[in-house]
Computed example of a mutant assay.
Amino acid sequence: MKITGYRTIRTHRDWGRPVGDVNGYIASGITEVSIVVVETDEGVDGVALGSDHDIERIFPALEGQDPRGVSALYDRMLAHVFKAGHNGATFGGIATLDAALWDIKAKLVGEPLWRLLGASDRFVPGYASGLDIALTDEQLAHFYSVMAEHGFASGKLKGGRDLEADLRRLRIIRDTLAPNSSHPTLMLDANESWNLKQAVRYVTAVEQELDLAWIEEPLRRWDAHGHARLSQSVKAAVATGENLTGLEQFRSLFDLGSVDVVQAGAVWGVTHFLRLAYAAHARDLPISPVGLTSNPAVAHAAAAIPNHLTAEVQDLGAPFGVDVDEEYADGGIVLGDRPGAGLSIDEAAIRSVQHEGDWLQAAGPHVRPARAGLTLDRELSASSPAFAPRGA
Rank of each mutant, 00 (worst) to 15 (best):
H355C: 09
R168G: 07
V47C: 05
W194P: 01
V70A: 08
L157I: 10
S252I: 02
V238Y: 12
F123A: 02
H12Q: 07
T8D: 04
T40Q: 00
S129R: 00
R171W: 00
P184N: 04
M147H: 01
D255P: 03
S181C: 02
T240K: 09
E63A: 15
P389E: 10
A79W: 14
R221V: 11
T31L: 06
A153C: 03
G5F: 12
V124K: 15
A27I: 03
M187P: 00
A128V: 05
R221D: 02
R76Y: 05
V262N: 06
L108K: 14
T4S: 13
V81W: 11
L210Y: 00
L316W: 04
V200S: 02
I35F: 10
H227I: 02
S344R: 15
G321Y: 03
F123T: 02
P60H: 15
L256R: 11
G364M: 05
T293D: 13
L113G: 12
I104L: 14
G332P: 03
W15P: 00
G43R: 01
G373P: 01
I345N: 01
L117K: 10
L309K: 15
D103E: 15
V124Y: 11
Q361N: 09
I104R: 14
P218K: 14
A277Y: 03
L186A: 01
